[in-house]
Write a protein that binds this DNA or RNA. Structure first.
Length: 278
DNA sequence: AAACAAACCTGTGCGC
DNA sequence: TGCGCACAGGTTTGTT
């Protein structure tokens, strides 16, 4: 579910609601969400700390804590981080509930339990979360240029969308935004990345930044199943601006002539307009 | 190296 | 209504 814009929306929500708060007590649910260590390690790691700041790298949230600790949260497909008064009943599938000193609870909710939480000494980051070091550049944190994309595409025989989904190439883009970025750049998702010339790469870099920024401004995308919501349970609105994703059979909103088509790339549904995108 | 398949889970929507 | 199946925003592992 959550891609860069949704995770960034959560990050901003958390920054405004939990920075400066202390963790009084922690209730844990399913062991699986703490699989990188254990539920008791997560509870012990959080209890008694104060939240200093909230960082994001690609789809990874990094909550910096006192005591030189960090809590890493990855929402995967169905995870949510919610801040709610502790008096309100917890939703189903609430696997971490951290009581804060202002009476709110920070809650990690995840029906499918693909998501995870781990607390570690910040100095051990490279050991505990080794995939962070392998992430490619984050288009909003690091910026992305035509030259940077040329470097990524160079010497590879790979389809464009597959490259966009590869977190070690570019961090934060998932299935929705890969489709929307390809559309905005007017590039077919299945064309060979190595075939892109300087003009194409320039369009791709601009599309990446503009689509992701617009999506962050809209608070992310909440599809029909409403799985993604922000920390206050609010839906995003960028789904109203999707041009192709999950719109098979509908008329392309950009050219007004093409009908959005569906294909499968890397086991993921892929939507594109055969007229706009070459 | 790239593409593909399956796995991890639960929920929802659709056709019959 | 109920059942069975397809499918869902992610990532990893193993196989062609």
């Amino acid at each position: 579910m959550p891609e860069l814009p949704e995770v960034e929306t959560v990050r901003r929500g958390l920054a405004g609601r939990i920075v400066g708060r202390s963790v009084m007590n922690v209730d844990m649910g399913r062991e699986r969400v703490a699989r990188r260590t254990s539920t008791s390690a997560v509870a012990r790691g959080l209890t008694g700390t104060t939240i200093i700041e909230v960082d994001r790298r690609g789809k990874y949230l990094l909550i910096r804590l006192t005591g030189q600790r960090t809590a890493m949260v990855h929402l995967r497909m169905s995870g949510q981080l919610l801040v709610a008064p502790s008096a309100l009943p917890r939703p189903n599938h609430c696997h971490v509930a951290a009581l804060l000193d202002d009476g709110n609870e920070l809650r990690f909710v995840d029906p499918r339990t693909f998501g995870e939480v781990v607390v570690y000494a910040t100095a051990d980051e490279a050991v505990v979360v080794p995939e962070l070091a392998r992430l490619g550049r984050d288009p909003l944190v690091d910026g992305v240029s035509r030259a940077a994309l040329a470097e990524i595409c160079r010497g590879r025989r790979r389809r464009l969308k597959s490259l966009l989904l590869d977190q070690t190439a570019i961090a934060g883009i998932g299935n929705i935004y890969a489709d929307e970025i390809c559309h905005r750049a007017r590039l077919r998702p299945d064309r060979q990345a190595a075939s892109l010339d300087g003009r194409h790469l320039q369009r791709l870099a601009e599309a990446m930044v503009s689509v992701l920024n617009a999506a962050v401004s809209a608070g992310g995308s909440t599809l029909g199943d409403a799985q993604y919501v922000g920390v206050d349970g609010q839906a995003g609105s960028f789904q109203d601006e999707h041009r192709v994703h999950a719109r098979a059979g509908l008329r392309c909103g950009t050219c007004g002539r093409g009908i959005v088509r569906r294909m499968v790339i890397d086991q993921r549904s892929t939507y594109w307009c055969g007229i706009c995108q070459r």
